[in-house]
């Protein structure tokens, strides 16, 4: 299963809705990182609202992907961590998700825009059309 990466101006939206196998996870990481580089994305929102099983492996994939995106120079936000997911990840005992999180995609986009604006990125003009 290939995860669609949607483009919204200079932002990228990803919604992970199914459990990923190792190979799919690696494919997703490289697809996303390449896409970020290709369009020089300013921000990426990863929505995991619908993701059923976030075990330590999925948490690692999400975390690593976020770190990679940041290394390239884009902002990243994780959206929609469910209450029981949060309780389980913390119970398991490590900082499984280190990236910034928001309740939903809406707030995620807002936060990305705020962060991009606050770092003084002149390339970003909100609702620009390219």
């Amino acid at each position: 299963m290939k995860i669609p990466i949607l483009r919204l101006g200079r932002l990228l939206l990803v919604s992970i809705q199914e459990d990923l196998t190792d190979n799919e996870a690696m494919q997703f990481q490289s697809d996303l990182v390449n896409k970020v580089a290709e369009i020089e994305a300013l921000g990426v929102a990863v929505d995991i609202t619908a993701l059923d099983v976030v075990d330590s492996y999925m948490a690692r994939v999400i975390n690593d992907t976020a770190s990679m995106v940041r290394l390239l120079g884009a902002e990243v936000v994780i959206c929609g961590v469910q209450p029981f997911v949060a309780m389980t990840l913390i119970e398991m005992g490590r900082d499984l998700i280190g990236a910034d999180c928001t309740f939903n995609l809406d707030q995620g986009l807002e936060q990305l825009k705020t962060r991009i604006a606050s770092r003084g990125d002149i390339r970003f003009a909100g609702d620009e059309d390219e």
Partner: peptide, 20 residues
């Protein structure tokens, strides 16, 4: 032990599962 892994994993599988 927390964080110990022989593979490319986080190393919280066994201790994490036991805590759950």
């Amino acid at each position: 032990t927390e964080g110990y892994s022989t593979g490319a994993r986080l190393g919280c599988g066994l201790p994490g599962a036991s805590r759950l």
